[in-house]
Amino acid sequence: MFYQHAKISKISEENPRVKTFILDCDLKTEPGQFLMLWIPESGERPMSIAGANPLTLSIANVGKVSASIHSKKVGDRIFFRGPLGKPFTFQSSYKRIVLVGGGYGVAPLRFLASAAAKKKISVKLIMGAKTKGELMASPDKKICETIITTDDGSEGQKGFTTDALTNLLADNSSTPDAVYACGPELMMKKVAEICKQNKIPCQVSLERIMKCGIGLCGSCSVDGKLCCCEGPVFTGDEALGVKEFGSPQKK
């Protein structure tokens, strides 16, 4: 058997574009990893993992396969292989971290926030969207403090997540031990640059077309590095070393 299979036990709508699917199984996985989701009648795509116990996927309706899972109901079955890829990592010395999520990039960061909270690391999540209606759900206050930004100011601070990050880092009394980002690539590039200027370690998660998911087909290669098995999480410095970082090439 190449695929594991699971049934959908709960579906919640995060916003008009994103649904979160809770499955009837657990997966041994770490935040930042992904799986290859197979919907037999429509195809297979890489999906970031939004939670492990139970396995949770937050999926934006952006294409054929995601539209197909969006049409599923509780009790329907999905197939997957994984977890795949390298996760976000913590140093044991970390006391506080900042997460920066844009759009549906927030999904794996909520999983990361829970994992960090379990390790007694204090977490601040900066979460942004274009407008109120495109925001993802905030994590529980017990897990982390959430700072919301919207481009149009319809909720939280008006502006970009990166503005909120700059403001946060201006306060020298609580400099984070590391910053983690997931979302639009231009946002992640800005985050990586801000962290570099402030000499704070940073990790970002690159999204590329992945066909095989196991480092053979090369469809996810960026400057010869393979996002599927050497990423998708890269350090800010590694990502800044990639020519196309910030403006992914369409293949």
Partner: peptide
């Protein structure tokens, strides 16, 4: 090329 799934292992 073909649409995924294109490879299993």
């Amino acid at each position: 090329g073909h649409d995924p799934p294109v490879l299993i292992s």
